[in-house]
Amino acid sequence: MGTERTKIITHIATARSWLAANSRWVLILTLILALIFPFSVKTYILSLGIEVLIFAIFAMSLDLLLGYTGLPSLGHAAFFGLGAYILAYVSSNSELALGLTDNLLITLPIVILGTALSAVILGFLALRTSGVFFLMITLAFAQMLFSIAIRWSSVTGGSDGMTGVPRPTLGIGTWHLSFTDRADFYYLVLAFFCITWFLLRYIVRSPFGLALRGIHANEQRMRGLGYNTFRYKFTAFIVSGVIAGIAGMLLSQYFWHAVPHNLFWNMSGQALIMVVVGGPGTLTGPVIGATLMRLLPNFASTYTELSETLMGLVLILFVLLAPGGIFGIFHKKR
């Protein structure tokens, strides 16, 4: 047993140093693989890939709060679902919605504004508290939106949600791009994923991101150093909410509808599991977590309950045994 263990540890250490030395090549290789992905796989796997990317965006946005700033939000589905519903309201052709346009140049700013506004309201209230109370307020907010979405059926479509959401287009004047086809939509999601990844990487490496990590480590000391910590947390909350909203928008476009389940606490819980299992406080971690957690239901698809039970068990095991997540096993934290 003992020698086995040391062997595994040395293997992991080798993998670790190899990854650290070649991280750029790994990144480029991953990107190339992601680009040729639609040509090489069946539609079923392609749709799985789209889902994984959308949930990776969602999980990364939560990680900015949970992993970097240390704010345990259990209401992130609020923004995810709001993004979906706002887009559906603007572009769906059902009689409940406005059905204005499916042009991303118009719908995207509306989604960003709407989710940012709700993040301002929730952040202003919730960030007065911390720890468990923050978790409960965010959960309560999402749950309130969920019950509105279910009950106020004359506006939201009730438990059926809003149907008839079109895949987006992109156009100015006569120049026009359509993403109706699954493979085209995959590239759009991939583009959003890359933008989010680089934006978040820029944010967490900037002085602002360092301040967020400082708040995670010791908020009182940061305050003592003269940082207005509320302002930092508030900004991070809004950025994170907007990115989650964009992920929700993409999901509703992909599945042609916005449903109340997008707002349910189960969704927030799944995002949290993705972050914690993948590796909180990193950007690769949530992506790994999202991949794993979206693939899990497919392996256990004959027992639908089993996959969710497994999800919870995996979460508990990782918290108990590997608090750095999967990424933390292969990557030494600096």
């Binding site: 345990p72 914690v276 969710e308 508990i316 918290v319």
Partner: peptide, 22 residues
């Protein structure tokens, strides 16, 4: 740290709900 058991509690909630549904 205080937040860690809270996260396992969320996992436990998942496990219990879906185990009982199963």
């Amino acid at each position: 740290p205080r937040l860690v058991p809270l996260i396992t509690a969320i996992g436990a909630s998942f496990v219990l709900q879906y185990t009982f549904r199963g």
